[in-house]
């Protein structure tokens, strides 16, 4: 089967060791995490983890089922790029030690609707919000000036429209396998 990028949204109890429990499952089953982001939700007892990984559909379904087995996991949802909005924040420190270079960087930054969050005589630090493609394109251009360091938050994603992850409890996830929930 065809391997492609998938985004998994995982709702977990906000208790110690949860992130390691979730990430360990990936390493145990031999999958690489492309990106991982984690933070609390509107309920401080609940954390939402977003993981991007490559795999075929059967692999992702099996992984979601294994994730649902963890007691700390409240719900798991596989989000498609069509149905979900994805964002990532990237900070790029660029070498720009002359006025000309700084002006040129500022021009690129404005075209990308990125922003400058720190400036010094030698460097500019640029912050860009967007999907992966946008960040990549910007970094590509900034590479000419010399990129000193890059840090990314990892991709987060949320479904478009009225649907939320809360509709996707473990029970409904298992319904596809014939679980009696009605």
């Amino acid at each position: 089967m065809e391997s492609k990028e998938h985004t998994l949204s995982i709702l977990v109890e906000n208790t110690p060791g949860v992130l390691s429990q979730v990430s360990r499952l990936f390493s145990r089953k031999g999958y690489n995490i492309e990106s991982i982001a984690s933070g609390t939700t509107e309920d401080p007892k609940v954390t939402r983890i977003t993981i991007v990984m490559n795999g075929d559909d059967a692999t992702i379904a099996q992984l979601a089922a294994q994730l649902r087995k963890l007691l700390c996991v409240i719900s798991v949802k596989v989000l498609s790029t069509e149905d979900a909005v994805q964002r990532e924040l990237v900070l790029v420190k660029v070498k720009a030690d002359t006025k000309d270079k700084r002006d040129e960087v500022l021009q690129i930054v404005s075209v990308f609707r990125a922003s400058v969050v720190d400036i010094s005589r030698e460097t500019l630090t640029v912050s860009i919000l967007g999907d992966e493609n946008k960040a990549c394109a910007l970094m590509d251009l900034l590479a000419d000036f010399g990129v000193l360091e890059v840090v990314r938050t990892g991709i987060i994603a949320i479904e478009r429209g009225i649907r939320t992850i809360y509709e996707d409890t473990k029970e409904s996830g298992e319904f596809n396998y014939g679980k009696n929930v009605l």
């Binding site: 059967a58 379904a61 099996q62 089922a65 294994q66 649902r68 087995k69 996830g173 298992e174 396998y177 014939g178 679980k179 009696n180």
Partner: peptide, 17 residues
């Protein structure tokens, strides 16, 4: 165990319980 469905065997009709 729902995670057994399709793990080693692709299944036409799964029933979990």
């Amino acid at each position: 165990d729902p995670a057994e469905i399709g793990k080693n065997f692709s299944t036409t009709v799964p029933v979990v319980g």
